[in-house]
Write a protein that binds this DNA or RNA. Sequence first.
DNA 1: CATTGTTATGTAAACGTTTACAAAATTTTC
DNA 2: GAAAATTTTGTAAACGTTTACATAACAATG
Lengths: 354, 354
Amino acid sequence: MNITIKEIAKRANVSIATVSRALNNLDNVRPETKDSILSIAEKLNYIPNVGARNLVMQKTNIIGFVLPEIQGEFYTEIIRGIDEYVYNAGYHMIVASSHSQRSIVESLVNFMKRSFVDGVILMAPSINERVKEIITGSTVPVVVISGKSEVDIVDTVSIDNFQGAYSIVNFLIKNYGHTKIAIIKGPSTNNDSLERYEGYAAALTDNKIKINENWVVEGDFTLRGGEIACSRLMTLLERPDAIFASNDMMALGCYKVINSLGYSVPKDIGVVGFDHILFSDVVLPRLTTVHVPKSELGQEAARLLLERLDGGRDKEPEHVKVSTGIIIGESCNNLNDYNHKPRYQPINQSINQL
Amino acid sequence: MNITIKEIAKRANVSIATVSRALNNLDNVRPETKDSILSIAEKLNYIPNVGARNLVMQKTNIIGFVLPEIQGEFYTEIIRGIDEYVYNAGYHMIVASSHSQRSIVESLVNFMKRSFVDGVILMAPSINERVKEIITGSTVPVVVISGKSEVDIVDTVSIDNFQGAYSIVNFLIKNYGHTKIAIIKGPSTNNDSLERYEGYAAALTDNKIKINENWVVEGDFTLRGGEIACSRLMTLLERPDAIFASNDMMALGCYKVINSLGYSVPKDIGVVGFDHILFSDVVLPRLTTVHVPKSELGQEAARLLLERLDGGRDKEPEHVKVSTGIIIGESCNNLNDYNHKPRYQPINQSINQL
DNA sequence: CATTGTTATGTAAACGTTTACAAAATTTTC
DNA sequence: GAAAATTTTGTAAACGTTTACATAACAATG
């Protein structure tokens, strides 16, 4: 039989109310009474029944984290960020990644069950109508990571994709003298992907470089997708001299293709990525990429959610953007190093003549 | 106000018992009654209170997964394996990875709280006395992944490390003609690490190759650890002609060091790893390594745990070993290709003369 | 048509807490 | 030393289910 406060109450010759108070050291319990109760609880190896407490408190201290797929370190880091934050506040996290047998919608609906989780963090770079509907109708607070800013009814956390893409492309131009910069975009439904493209486009435009549509190809954020996209770029009659891959995985795909075609990074073509995954530091040459503070994304989301839970349920939705930084590897040449007079001047002209 | 079965009962003019029965379609409920109840529940958008159900059922349908650190894809894959399996059985998983503010012990103790989780999967390549104690005294079933076989009071799942290490080292000898094979061991407290060493040693012995203690160095399963260990090996007066790194991360560390010293893999030295992480296929040359079915580890653990939960609480503990395979990359040379007569003969002698 | 058997529904306890309110015990105040 | 104020403890309801047992409704049987 399991030890309950009832049992402790009997042995301590007090009521269960007093036991409860002593255990939660609440109110005023006479010190001697409290000590006695505590020592009895200790002796009996009492463990509170979380379920019973949840029932009466209408709170589980569990939050749900829904994500598209648990794969790669990107998500792992976010999970860690959330977990570390909520742990300090006495919460736990249930992770539900969608897979063959479970969709995001299903996970969401499941979590919304009353008294299952106190709140939900949803990582969804693309949000469909159904999901939006569920979020809107949710009884528990929801925080969205990386969603379109359209979802402004709830708190959101997102990467400053525009800033990241803009700055690395601008960096390619200003520091390395590149002008023939291609982009491998992410999936078109993906919000991060869109914003990164916009940053790319803006950087070119601000530097008076026209966008060459041949150098804008779409990938799917996978290694294989990067390979395919890169091989399209490498076999063009007019090749770019640098590739901005919208994430590091695709950048690594570029590495593979470029190497197998007998070219070399960065001598023949520069490659930059986005995300700063572990392996961008491991590969040779090290990848120049945009650092995304992944764990911070999770932490911020957790912070917003917990703030909602602590009463602020009807304050205005907050929208947090986490900024990025550039990690400089050796994956792009300084074109000026090879050519005394900057090559980009004539090239730029030739582009303008197109 | 939240909708409860009480409310539904009132509207349907039945008792809460009947509502409960209809909702769980149990027993015999008159079809018309059932339909009426179901439609009312639907209309009111009734959501059952999980906490209340948990309390009376004495079951949460949540399992806990405790792991040393949530990092790298290895753990991620295991998490996925567990999640997919338990999801089909209607369970959820709470992941607790230890970090600065939380130890394995703490996570365990936390989970053991009554009515918090129905069971625990513990991933612990090294188990100390305190943890063993907690496992032994646990009221809920525990399954250990990768633990020492000493922990035989509970179900365990582990990688067949010996087989994996033996077969890849044997492969190096038999297929590539290597004999001067070094090993970078994992941390000495780590069980997987130990077993891999034993596989290495046995393969050498079975091939009548003496173990050269200079070629046995310790790493810590990290990239950096691999680098340090590798540089120790590469600066020896008598260098090995192949390195068996006890995991892929360290093997990649070897790549870095070998490359920066101006040598090349596999021409100057062969490298093999263990784990078959994603990046072993991405690097050039692709790493020859031991494939570990990570997701299967998780699935097996989940299966064992759920079997326990479904009644078989007092059957004998089961010990599952998942087998490994060899993934062949280009990270080792066939020494015979470079030298008509097998080089290993004289080398072998020279070792024997030491 | 009374008796038995079956099926459908209701009553109430149980799960183990927390907590509002009441009551008792103790201390303070005049 | 009684009245008032304060502290400590107890009583009982509440949280929202499930389910054993009781009972009502109905069909089948002789």
